[in-house]
Design a protein around this nucleic acid. Structure first.
Lengths: 185, 185
DNA sequence: CTCTGCATGTAATTCGTTACATGATTTA
DNA sequence: TAAATCATGTAACGAATTACATGCAGAG
């Protein structure tokens, strides 16, 4: 029961399965991912159980869209989930597991390549977030970061965490490369 | 094919399913989790496919143990996985998804409780890691953090990242609480 | 006319969790 | 004698990925 709640959260405004996938992929990608074939049956089951309701609507470009709305029961279920308090568990970061076992490759040159790949990904991620923040600073001026309306405030908290972590990752990967190089001499 | 590789990584030394679960739970918990009922059938399948080999051995306390060793084919598969480069995707952090939608609870007092729960967890996590690091500093003195042998070097990289992230989380959650309180006035 | 984006879905399979079942040894 | 730790596993279910199948509309 997890995608279930994510979808309820996203359905503050009516949306189709396709829309939802895109939103998750863009705005929530740092802590969640889904594929379309998981979304469609989940939404259907949620409708059967009364958490959402759907209507077919014509689309400008492409086939008709099934647009979902959250019901009162859906909103209630979402709030219940939020009031459970922070849910931990099921963390899965493949790249850290790989790093943990990296000595098994034997050759430090290859380990170095791994770390450099990691660094370029992490730096790109940080740059991307930093650009977004620059945009906000221009837009809000001195009101940043506290000029957001209520709903965006909590979203900004996740952003704030995200950019700080991205920075740590970028610094850490650069430092790790240096440590490995020093050790190779 | 993910637990598969984690188990191969842990099997640098022979171990039983029970041992493996404990190791993952202790040393890898920040980026991986498993339950025993997933481990047993996975190991069995891995043995059928020739990645590991098992022998029954008597135990001091309790029932006999099925102890697994990694085969040459297993080691090869592990190295192949590591050489694929860093694998991203499938991130899942429930508590951040919850935070993202937290405005839906309406009442900021309840949101505050959520953030305070988060903070106490994050601070405890940081303290725990800081204690471990203090121990190492005492043990290695000026050689810390570079006095580790090769295999522990990479493990220390994951630790170094972990403690930095834990600190960020602790600071961020305290800051977020302050921001929310300021906004509630 | 081909490629990209829009938009829906099914089927098969794999991965992961929870509940259940069993039983020995050690510690309080 | 009750609880904790050791140790294995099965069964049922739920969550997630991959492959497959279909078809329209607009841009180049």
């Amino acid at each position: 029961m997890s995608l279930h709640h994510i979808l309820l959260g996203c359905l503050a405004k009516p949306a189709s399965g396709y829309d939802l996938q895109k939103e998750i992929d863009q705005a929530l990608s740092h802590f969640w991912s889904v594929q379309l074939p998981q979304i469609y049956p989940t939404l259907r089951r949620m409708e059967e159980e009364g958490f959402v309701a759907s209507k077919m609507k014509a689309s400008k470009a492409g086939p008709p869209r099934r647009v979902y709305k959250r019901t009162a029961k859906g909103k209630e279920a979402l709030v219940d989930w939020l009031l459970e308090g922070p849910i931990f568990g099921g963390e899965r970061r493949h790249y850290l597991a790989q790093l943990y076992f990296l000595s098994e490759v034997g050759d430090p040159e290859k380990a170095l390549v791994f770390l450099e790949d990691l660094r370029s990904i992490m730096e790109a991620r940080y740059e991307q977030l930093a650009e977004i923040e620059t945009g906000w600073r221009k837009e809000f001026g001195a009101d940043y970061p506290d000029g957001f309306p209520d709903d965006e405030f909590y979203r900004h908290l996740t952003f704030d965490l995200g950019i700080n972590i991205a920075k740590i990752y970028a610094d850490w990967s650069a430092r790790s490369i240096a440590r490995l190089k020093a050790r190779m001499k």
